[in-house]
């Protein structure tokens, strides 16, 4: 076969390969153009009979032709395979807006979340988390916190007491009540731990309040206490301002104004500028020396600050909730909005 003739064979073969419209046709084309009986295969087997001076050129040309055509077959095969797969994939098309299997997911209660958030803000600066009993001794709820025996907050119109349930006599400081604040844990914690103390106490508290949009007989507070050898009023301010920024956003501004609580002196109320108004957010102050004495700390040796905030109030302000009853009704349409 001369080289001219070979070029024609290659041209024809390539056309034949590229014309194959499916994989079967391509197999036929491959065996016709490159198979044992193909013109090229026949020519290759005849190379030995050629004159030695042509043998090299023709041989190289035929080998190149085989390589070219083999590559053409492979290219065509890939193309045809891809086409075939595309057809199958097109048949597999579905409507992605059909309902899907919704992964199960409930929600945490917003009060739990809020308490965790607050605790985490304080944990980040080294405060531990402790919890105290809900059914508490009057001693811890009132007496240890410097509340006079005649104070109206002790009246049944404010505080829930329990009926006798065993043969023990419980009166005065030993009387059992549903704690009206998380503050009793201040005294419990200090009794058990020597200074320094850095702790926050989330928990449930109780008052004889009838239900309305802002009152609930059951609610939650978070108490905080820092006691060390050198704590000043500036520490209280800065720490609580830090909390406000972390909880309400970095732009939260705070203001501290004098107030009165039996268990702190000086006492303060922290206001937070949120949604264009100053809101009373928590009560705080320097721990009253009488509290230190009640728990066996030496008021000459330590100073400290304490604060208490309402969890419902924090959540209501931050999330625009106007009715406290949403927290306790367990309406899934409401709970489901919590995140």
């Amino acid at each position: 076969m001369d080289l001219e003739r070979l070029a024609g064979v290659i041209r024809d073969a390539r056309a034949r390969i590229e014309a194959a419209s499916d994989l079967d046709e391509l197999s036929d084309a491959e065996s016709e153009t490159l198979g044992r009986r193909s013109e090229i295969a026949v020519a290759r087997s005849g190379i030995g009979r050629l004159a030695p001076d042509r043998r090299r050129d023709v041989g190289r040309a035929i080998n190149e032709a085989v390589g070219t055509l083999t590559a053409a077959v492979e290219d065509r095969r890939s193309a045809l395979q891809a086409e075939a797969e595309n057809v199958l994939l097109e048949q597999d098309r579905i409507d992605l807006t059909l309902p899907y299997g919704r992964p199960a997911r409930g929600t945490h209660h917003l009060l739990t979340r809020t308490m965790e958030d607050v605790c985490d803000v304080f944990r980040a600066i080294g405060y531990e988390v402790a919890e105290g009993p809900e059914l508490e001794l009057a001693w811890y709820n009132f007496d240890a916190l410097n509340t006079p025996p005649t104070h109206p907050s002790r009246f049944e119109s404010d505080t829930m007491y329990v009926e006798p349930f065993d043969d023990r006599e419980r009166s005065g400081p030993d009387e059992l009540l549903l704690r009206t604040q998380t503050s009793p844990m201040q005294a419990r914690f200090m009794e058990k731990n020597p200074p320094p103390v850095y702790v926050v106490v989330p928990g449930r508290v109780f008052r004889t309040d009838t239900w309305d949009a802002t009152h609930s007989p059951v609610f939650h507070q978070i108490e905080g206490l820092a006691v060390d050898s050198d704590i000043t009023f500036g520490d209280l301010k800065g720490t609580l301002a830090y909390f406000a920024r972390e909880f309400f956003g970095v732009s939260a501004r705070t203001r501290f104004v004098p107030h009165f609580f039996p268990f702190t002196e000086p006492s303060a109320e922290m206001l937070v500028w949120f949604n264009d108004e100053w809101l009373e957010m928590l009560g705080c102050g320097m721990v009253d020396p009488n509290v230190f004495e009640a728990v066996g700390y030496d008021p000459a040796e330590v100073t400290g600050f304490a604060f208490g905030m309402g969890v419902e109030r924090l959540a209501m302000v931050r999330h625009g909730i106007t009715d406290i009853r949403h927290f306790y009704d367990s309406d899934l349409r409401v709970l489901g909005q919590f995140r």
């Binding site: 600066i125 080294g126 320094p196 850095y198 704590i231 830090y242």
Partner: peptide, 8 residues
């Protein structure tokens, strides 16, 4: 002043 504690 932000007062740091000891165990978070």
């Amino acid at each position: 002043l932000v007062r740091h504690g000891t165990r978070g």
